[in-house]
């Protein structure tokens, strides 16, 4: 293991990483989609034909138009409109923005908290470790949806509460991963060397242990983002998530649900496709990252 790492360093780890990642065309496709989705979400206000949150721009007379129809003032609704006369294409791109924002945001916060606790557990051991890991086990033994429901039930609906719920659902997995990776790393020589130099503990944790635990955390993080987006969409679909004025993909789907039975499929269908493509793309990237970054699977 140490020898392969040594060789890897010589041929620049980044190059090797990119070439190994590129071995799976599907994963590359996934990455391209993720980048496109991210750019769309970031650039939403500049590229969408309509601002779907600006009620002044919406005309109820344009409600529930089929894909390809034109509005009163000549705008083409490529993906149709919803019941409020909102252009679905614009709605979806803005929805992506919210879904990604909530998903990525909560994944990062959960990642920071979870990794810190996991590292602390591994580093301090003893009672600290027992307490943290017990909590992790308890958390993981309950399904995510139930934990999220509990939190929203107590705190009420809203974007921030959804994010809080996502963070509380997710942190445990990071903690477990970080602890596992740190326990392996701790036995390595460089940590012992750093300990001999009597570096302060927090420096040791932050600058020596953490960077070396990053690969598995990145893998988990990717998958967790997809899970967070799914869970947010589910909660919003259930009407417990983001407010109706700024719909995420899940809420767009929920809004279209009632019209689906009358054959107006597009209001639910296209946001669903956007959600699906995003989640699958992230999963493809995550799977390949796992293969590339996981030293156990390396040849």
């Amino acid at each position: 293991m140490s020898t392969t790492a040594g060789i890897a360093r010589e041929e620049t780890p980044f190059r090797r990483f990119t070439s190994e990642f590129a071995e799976s065309p599907l994963a590359v496709l996934g990455l391209v989609i993720v980048v496109i989705v991210a750019v769309l979400a970031l650039a939403a206000p500049f590229i969408t034909p309509q601002n779907p949150y600006d009620l002044a721009q919406l005309d109820i007379m344009d409600g529930r138009l089929a894909p390809g129809s034109k509005s009163m003032d000549g705008l083409v609704f490529w993906l149709g409109t919803d019941d409020q006369g909102r252009d679905m294409l614009s709605g979806i791109i803005y929805g992506l923005r919210i879904s990604l924002g909530v998903g990525v945001g909560s994944a990062i916060i959960a990642g920071v908290i979870g990794s810190a606790l996991g590292l602390a557990a591994a580093y301090f051991g003893g009672k600290v470790e027992t307490a943290i890991m017990r909590l992790v086990d308890l958390q993981l033994s309950f399904p995510a949806i139930l934990v999220a429901l509990m939190i929203l039930a107590v705190l009420g609906k809203g974007v921030l509460n959804v994010m809080l719920a996502l963070v509380l659902v997710e942190w445990a997995r990071y903690a477990r991963t970080a602890r596992g990776a740190a326990l392996v790393e701790r036995r390595r020589e460089y940590i012992e060397a750093a300990e001999c130099l009597a570096l302060p503990r927090w420096r040791l944790l932050a600058f020596h242990l953490l960077p070396n635990c990053m690969p598995p955390l990145i893998v988990i993080g990717t998958i967790q983002i997809a899970r967070a987006i799914t869970l947010e969409a589910t909660l919003s679909f259930l009407g417990l998530g983001v407010p109706i004025t700024e719909p995420s993909l899940g809420l767009l789907i929920a809004n279209g649900y009632q019209y689906m039975l009358s054959g107006k499929y597009w209001i639910s269908f296209y946001p669903g496709i956007a959600l699906l493509v995003t989640i699958i793309a992230i999963n493809l990237v995550g799977d390949q990252l796992r293969d590339v970054l996981n030293p156990r699977l390396k040849r």
């Binding site: 589910t234 789907i253 689906m260 499929y265 639910s268 959600l275």
Partner: peptide, 22 residues
């Protein structure tokens, strides 16, 4: 089976309704 894990179940439910009911 990967789809079984990663597809949001509410969306799959909607699609089932759309195809088999509508």
């Amino acid at each position: 089976s990967i789809f079984g894990f990663s597809l949001p179940s509410f969306w799959v439910g909607l699609m089932l309704i759309m195809v088999f009911a509508v």
